[in-house]
Amino acid sequence: MNKLILGRYFPGGSLLHRIDPRAKLLAGISFIFILFIANNWITYLVLWLFTFTMMKLSGVSIRIYLRGVRPLIWLILFTVSLQVLFTAGGEIYIDWGPITISSFGLINGLYIFSRFTMIIFVSTVVTLTTKPIDLTDAINYLLQPLKRLKLPVDEISLMLAIALRFIPIILDETQKVMDAQRARGTVFGEGSLPQQIKKIVPIFVPLFVSSLGRAEDMANAMEVRGYQSNNPRSSFRRLQWQKTDIAALFAMVLLAVILFILRTEGHHFH
């Protein structure tokens, strides 16, 4: 529970910490699209170089990023193995009916693996270097145009901010409840699957109860301070767009251009 890295903020003063959250969010999202430009080994190499530079720039140790991948590793390996086993073409090494291991399959598997891990790494870079509250401000800002479609953008971002705010608290609380039940003799991670599922009840029930209590306290606290959902709200922290932010977005455009130049035309593995 404590090993969850994705979505956590690491305080620091790196260049990436200082970039405007809107720029970071846009860059992070555009990276996911840029990933799909790559289709040969040199483009993937460029992307890996980019990813590692970002990780280095964030000033957070590589080990913490690796820990972020760990909870998803089985999903990644499953997808990769599907690619490896069911892609035909190129040199074929093993052939058991529908299952083949071919050079195309292996290469494709490697690409898929790269894509997954790079997405995780880069989105971890964004969340590790951005305060959750700044991130929601950024989302709020970027969603503003949707107001024309009568979408309650401010409420959505407030909900998001509250949800993010409570993640660490609820994680702490989970730890406490788990400790309390351990002290009463529960051993987590032991026994058959149904037994293990049964052991979750003594954690979840207290967590639900306290979360509901917390939500009610929160709602009351907001109400007594005069919160009205339809009133326009001002912000204490104003986002400031600076030259470095333009540079950051320009870097993403540059990355996309480089990949377009280096990619193999008209040649697809899929």
Binding site: A180, Q181, A183, R184, V201, I203, V205, P206, V209, S210
Partner: peptide, 18 residues
Amino acid sequence: ARRKVGMVFQFPESQLFA
């Protein structure tokens, strides 16, 4: 050890679930 040691946490009522 857990069999021998009873532990009352701060705000122990938060461990009730049944």
